[in-house]
Computed example of a mutant assay.
Amino acid sequence: MRIDVLSLFPDMFAPMRESIIGKTIDKGLVDFNVVDFRDYTTNKHNKVDDEIYGGGQGMLLMPQPIFDAMDAVEQAAGDRGRVILMDPAGETFNQAKAEELAKEPHLTFIAGHYEGYDERIRELVTDEISIGDFVLTGGELGAMTVIDATVRLLDDALGDENSAVDDSFSTGLLEYPQYTRPADFRGRQVPDVLTSGNHAKIAEWKQKEALRRTYLRRPDLLENYPFDKTSRRLLREVEAEENDANS
């Protein structure tokens, strides 16, 4: 996968060279490039923003530097790829979107600053993405979030092809509780079923506890969950147990 990012602050992307994402770059799974679109300005002061026609607060990013930077990306890569504009007004990012983007061979992010974008910049864009209902000073942190969530889904990124399978949201549920050694830590015991060696019982426990955590923390996710006979039974058990605990 090739990832290009258009940003005024390329040094902010240094963390992308660390941890799992850095390893994907070192392995050659990801070709990661940050383009400072200020380098493509044509005015003598290297300005990338200007006042808003018709009046308004703040300054808007001008189209020229971003269009020219995008042309440079296309020339280097052979295409622009899927172009993602980080924007508070965009589609809210989620795990399903990360899985969708992970299938793309080339992603290009536009991380803006200042008041916003000249509307003509949106002509370059295939997706507008927000990471939540709040406003950051720029799109860099949002772009890093999307990149991290996406790249970790690539084959061999995590070292184990099953590592991401049970992640929260990947199954439609929050992830079940997990434990490691020791089995008894200061009187806090690992559930007996997990040390029983009964794989069928363990699988059922994991599903039930994922349902429980989702029921308690994000019940909205259950509205669209594809229940089968077993999962409906387990949810009924969870509901009964939680009602008893609170009565």
Rank of each mutant, 00 (worst) to 15 (best):
P177G: 11
E74K: 15
A210W: 00
Y225V: 12
Q64K: 10
R181H: 11
D49C: 04
R152A: 10
G132K: 10
E18V: 05
G187Y: 11
L173M: 08
F185S: 09
G172K: 05
G159N: 04
K103T: 09
A14E: 13
E128R: 02
A102V: 02
Y215F: 15
R236K: 15
A14H: 14
V73S: 02
L211Q: 13
D31I: 06
M86C: 07
E241F: 08
V83Q: 02
L141T: 14
K44C: 00
D118A: 03
H113R: 15
G22A: 08
I21T: 13
E74V: 13
L174D: 08
G187S: 09
E175P: 09
E99H: 09
D155K: 15
D166R: 12
D39L: 12
T230D: 13
A157F: 01
V193C: 03
K201T: 09
E175I: 03
V165S: 08
K208Q: 14
T230H: 08
D26G: 11
E140N: 13
Q178C: 07
D244I: 12
A77P: 00
I52M: 02
N162S: 12
A111K: 00
Q207P: 00
H45R: 11
Y117W: 12
E123Y: 07
G56Y: 03
T214A: 05
I110K: 07
S170R: 08
G90A: 05
N246A: 15
V135T: 10
E74S: 14
A89T: 05
T214Q: 08
N243H: 12
G172F: 04
F185K: 06
K44L: 04
A76W: 01
A102H: 00
E119R: 05
F67L: 10
W205N: 06
L61Q: 01
D79M: 11
R212G: 06
D156L: 02
F9Q: 06
E115V: 01
H199F: 03
I66H: 00
I20S: 02
L141H: 10
F13H: 08
E74G: 09
R232K: 15
T145W: 00
S168C: 12
L235M: 12
H106T: 11
R232V: 06
W205A: 03
A149F: 06
L6N: 06
F13M: 08
F37C: 07
L60V: 06
